[in-house]
Amino acid sequence: MTSRLFNQMLEGIDRGAFPRTRKWAWRGVYNMLSRFWRDDDWRFMNYGYVPEGVAFPLEAADEPERAFIGLYAQAVDGLPVAGARVLEIGSGRGGGARYVARYHAPASVTGLDYSPETVRLARKLNADTPNLSFEQGDAEHLPFPDASFDIAVNIESSHCYANMPAFVGEVARVLKPGGWFTFADMRGRAAMTELDRQMAVPGLDLVSERNISPRVVAALDAADARKQARIGKALLMKRFMSEFAGAKGSMLYKGLSRGEVIYVARRYRKAG
């Protein structure tokens, strides 16, 4: 039953159905997961990215998270992060914000998430990183002044939002002139044109776009054994967790593998 409901939720996202109900439902899912799985073995909640070619450097303690860190490494690669004020919108358990804070020398990283339980957990799991903080808030109504940040990061979170143009407009508002917005998320192939329209906000210029689906599938493959071990502990939630985690055989895994779902990475720059 839970697997079927999760599949219906994904299909509803593609159709744009019931956006505010969807937003509320995702918040409930993440609150629930943060209450039941509080350990630092699960610091990331993305599907991952395995790059082609030379691997990016990581300390030995972070190697188990390489597949998941990969989405953040590609997101900030080549951007002027050193000394910058960075905002991650949809920061989840905080692993990605922690990676940026520890490896790229920003002045500060602020993680924002809609789920209060998840924010509390992120603060606990990442208390060892001094230039990193977390706040609870709505991506469509960011609680920050105009021109507050140099770089905004949004990884695998926007599919939960009710109003994409409002979110992108808020990103444009809180970025400084010349600031960067780096985005990565998935949509059904038929929904890509709508995503283009939703993200076409005045003041943000599209600089680059890549279909990274094959590298995301490679990450799902690389992390599958570890995910299966955790899913095996979920008892009555096994089928739901298999779909949620994108395990092999799940609806999402099949969609990405077949090209029915596109995982896109984009960069925008604010005019000025």
Rank of each mutant, 00 (worst) to 15 (best):
L33G: 03
N131V: 06
D113A: 08
L112Q: 06
M251N: 06
Q8K: 09
P214M: 12
T193Y: 09
S208I: 06
Q74M: 13
F56Q: 08
R4M: 12
E65I: 01
E63K: 04
G259I: 14
D128T: 08
E59A: 02
A223P: 03
M192T: 13
S133V: 08
N131F: 04
R102F: 12
R197G: 14
A219H: 03
L79S: 01
S108P: 00
F167A: 06
V261P: 04
R215Q: 15
A97M: 04
V171K: 01
R239F: 05
A229N: 08
A127E: 11
N163Y: 01
A222F: 09
A225T: 14
A25S: 13
R239T: 00
S115V: 00
G90I: 07
F144H: 10
A222Y: 06
H141L: 13
P80Y: 09
W42E: 15
Q74P: 07
A223T: 05
H104G: 04
P165H: 10
V168M: 02
L252Y: 05
R123M: 14
G16R: 02
F240I: 11
A73T: 03
T110E: 14
L58R: 01
D221M: 01
S148V: 05
V261C: 02
S157A: 14
G203T: 03
N154H: 10
V153Q: 04
S108M: 12
R210S: 13
L220F: 07
A166S: 08
E117I: 02
D146W: 06
L125Q: 09
V100Q: 03
E65D: 12
V201W: 00
I151H: 04
R85V: 02
P51S: 12
L175A: 07
Y263S: 07
W180H: 12
G272E: 04
